[in-house]
Design a protein around this nucleic acid. Sequence first.
DNA 1: GCAAAATGTTATACATCATAACATTTTGCC
DNA 2: GGCAAAATGTTATGATGTATAACATTTTGC
Lengths: 153, 153
Amino acid sequence: MPYTAAIDLAGLDQRVGYMLRQAQLAVFDDFIASQRGAVTRPGQFAILMVIAGSPGLSQTQVCKTLGIKRANLVAAIDDLESLGWVRRDASASDRRSNRLQLTTAGQRALKNALDDQSVHEARITRLLGAASRRALLKQLAKLCELRKTRSSV
Amino acid sequence: MPYTAAIDLAGLDQRVGYMLRQAQLAVFDDFIASQRGAVTRPGQFAILMVIAGSPGLSQTQVCKTLGIKRANLVAAIDDLESLGWVRRDASASDRRSNRLQLTTAGQRALKNALDDQSVHEARITRLLGAASRRALLKQLAKLCELRKTRSSV
DNA sequence: GCAAAATGTTATACATCATAACATTTTGCC
DNA sequence: GGCAAAATGTTATGATGTATAACATTTTGC
């Protein structure tokens, strides 16, 4: 038996949580496969996007934007710094915090990643249809409202 | 500043992958919060559902159904066994494989988990509307088609 | 001026997910 | 029938994502 047919999911495929998780894994896999450069992981991509969109952000601000913990951003920025894509500049007004900037190499890397991401996003649009994709984004935004007050300790 | 307003997401909230991930995290959190009994994690819930729906399944069959690796199911079944919810019965026809069964305690635990899950699912339906929820499930199923040939080594 | 809060950091723990290797058993084929 | 190939459950291991606690330094609030 080269390909065993799917067994009974016992109604799991009618639960939003289960299907959300499966779709998320599929989409992330497709994202990663579409990345031909050095930016591979969605998390790294998101961090670069936020820094590029608001140069000079502190690490805490990036954490609040993306909903991640301060402690977990440290290693991520370390990686991006050792890739030569991000700089931690000292803030003039607050000696505790860093101002994050993309280097020119970082801008180039993000541009490539964005180009690859466009192909990925276009594949999704082709699969769903443009109108359905827009509706999906709205529904996902609504589901995010389930989040209580976001704690970013 | 007790609550810092959201900073610029730089268009991330228009990418399906990012919004899928955020929605999945929100929904999983809500699922976990709605579970009042001992079944807490979505993964455990999914395993119980599949075994309950097809008693006698082997571990490999559960893995193929849920798209998880054989190696990773071992500890999960170990846990469910030590909770007294699942039994590994020896298969009469294949001495390599186990036939998985819910114990009566496992059936009771799953029933409670399902009751709590219904409240969670109803909250989602109230948030989206019944028709939108149905449309969402269809779109998520389509996104799952992005998966190449699933490898379950 | 001083207690309280914020910032980046380290250490740590846990859950999820992946691969490789192994002993045992079954299957497929000649 | 016999034997290579495949399947099954398992162990070990590593990468990733996420969570908390604690700390030194610095800033804020009163």
